[in-house]
Design a protein around this nucleic acid. Structure first.
Lengths: 140, 140
DNA sequence: TGGGTAATGAATAAAAATATCAAAACGCTG
DNA sequence: CAGCGTTTTGATATTTTTATTCATTACCCA
């Protein structure tokens, strides 16, 4: 049982949720897919190898819940579907505007989000997302 | 006829496309909706007031084309749909994680995207997107 | 270990994105 | 400015993704 799963256990119980095998496997598989940024259906396929009878609805609902708990991040890059990744250290992405491929970039850019104003009033920012777009080597 | 439409005319012809009334109205309505970040269906409703017989497919296809031409930007903030805005000056957004509302922030953050590396190799970045997330006053 | 309740599985609904194709419209060319 | 090849439209259908429903299952606390 890895660190993510332990954190999951804690957070789940705190909020009145329950720990299920499905939930654990979804997070575990996503953690193992570091750098792959799979979409919901791909995660379903991955999880199904370990738990063949799991339903897509369960995977989907758990992704939403894990996102609420801050253990999973949802990413979108102008395609018609979301991608997911396990929340690890702060990092950013490059996405190819042609083929849609997404890769992690080497060094994270730091943005100081403490001075964000809207209509002259300061806004409390919980997180930010910085994404880079261009064309990958294959698509150029 | 505003400046955006003139640019549209130029770019359209250059690339072998044609100028149509539908195309012009889609861009014009989106230009007038500065700060609203409508989704495709909302743009369709706006355009329909001026051109009642236009079809959703036409609006949708033109949004895609205008995006290709760089006159329109597609935005997504973790909801299940895209938002659009006319390409104007560089600026960034704040999105409420609860209600999904999106607003422009006052001062743009500058990110120097010249040193982006993936797997040790430099990547040519055409654009970047920086978004801030939190909860708006109403949702707190 | 029993029981109240959250979660699952299976199915389906709803929403959003995309494709198809005959008919219409654009705009070049003479 | 009229004819014509080609692009674009309108209308509709299809696919993909997201979200919901509800009877049954399985957590987990006392």
């Amino acid at each position: 049982m890895n660190k993510n799963i332990k954190t999951l256990n804690q957070k789940i119980k705190q909020q009145g949720y329950r720990m299920t095998r499905q939930r654990e496997i979804v997070l575990d598989e996503l953690s193992k897919a570091k750098g792959r940024h799979p979409k919901a259906d791909e995660i379903y396929q991955m999880v199904r190898k370990r738990m063949p009878h799991i339903s897509f609805g369960t995977v989907y609902r758990n992704l939403r819940l894990l996102k609420e708990l801050g253990l999973v991040r949802e990413l979108c890059f102008g395609k018609s579907f979301s991608r997911f990744e396990a929340s690890v250290d702060n990092h950013q992405h490059f996405s190819c505007m042609t083929c849609g491929k997404v890769v992690d970039i080497d060094e994270p850019f730091e943005v100081s989000a403490s001075n964000v104003y809207v209509g002259g009033k300061p806004i409390e920012v919980d997180e930010y997302r910085l994404e880079f777009y261009g064309r990958c080597d294959d698509c150029r």
